[in-house]
Amino acid sequence: MDAPFVRGSIIDEFGNKVYDDVIFTPFFQSDSVTLERGMDHSVKQNTLVAVWTDGRDLTSWYADAMQTDGYETLFIEEGYTLQISQLGICDDTGMHTEPKVEFKVTKVDYVSPGLAKLHKDHDADEGTKNWVKGICIAIGAVLALYGLLTRRYVLVIGGAALIVFGLFFSDCVVNWIAGKVRL
């Protein structure tokens, strides 16, 4: 990705220099903007500005490994002015000074949380199903065994039914609980 840089000054809506002769990158938020060397740009939208370092020739700054020890951010709004003395594009071959640079705004599609397509965590569902299945089988086995020892065949039938329920219907129980409980 090409990175655009500006050398110049940032002036507030009252004419005060907020930054004088610095290297910065403005991140325009709503409309793409073309900046030209030697021209003042009146800001007409909210803009985040990354101020990289004190002003110096862009190619010299690039040759010095683009040091950003004093890096700062600034939020500017309509009424600010960008005084532009130098423009540059940095890519993998170096810094290239340009007479004009377009700062493109990339639109972001925001997703409403209610409209997001969420995917189930199948591993968590399997773990829960295994727990329900294991509990039903364990309780069913204890009931059936106790029913056999005490000769209460109703408990044997109930225990066997709980084992069958755990084996075949644990998915239904977990899905029902997941539908009722929203975490």
Rank of each mutant, 00 (worst) to 15 (best):
V142D: 09
T128Q: 08
D121H: 06
I163C: 09
V142P: 00
T150E: 10
G127S: 04
W131P: 06
D123A: 13
A160K: 04
A160H: 01
Y153Q: 13
R152K: 15
N130T: 14
A124M: 11
A160Y: 00
Y153T: 13
V142R: 02
I157Y: 01
I137R: 02
R151H: 11
C136N: 01
I137C: 08
L149W: 09
C136Q: 04
G127T: 01
V154F: 03
I139A: 12
G140E: 05
D125R: 08
D121P: 00
G127C: 07
V156E: 01
L155T: 09
L162N: 11
L145E: 15
R152D: 15
R151Y: 08
I135M: 11
Y153C: 11
V132Q: 02
I137W: 05
V142F: 07
L149E: 13
L162V: 08
A144N: 06
G147A: 09
Y146T: 15
A144V: 01
L149R: 10
G127P: 06
T150R: 12
L148C: 06
G140T: 03
V156S: 06
G147C: 08
A141W: 02
R151K: 12
D121E: 09
A161P: 04
L155Q: 13
C136G: 02
A138M: 12
N130S: 13
D123K: 12
G127A: 08
V142E: 03
R151S: 13
R152P: 00
G140K: 09
K129P: 05
G158P: 02
V154K: 11
L162W: 02
V156Q: 00
Y146G: 15
K133I: 08
V132T: 04
Y146F: 14
K133V: 03
L155P: 01
K133H: 04
G159W: 07
K133C: 10
I163P: 01
G140Y: 03
G159D: 07
G158E: 12
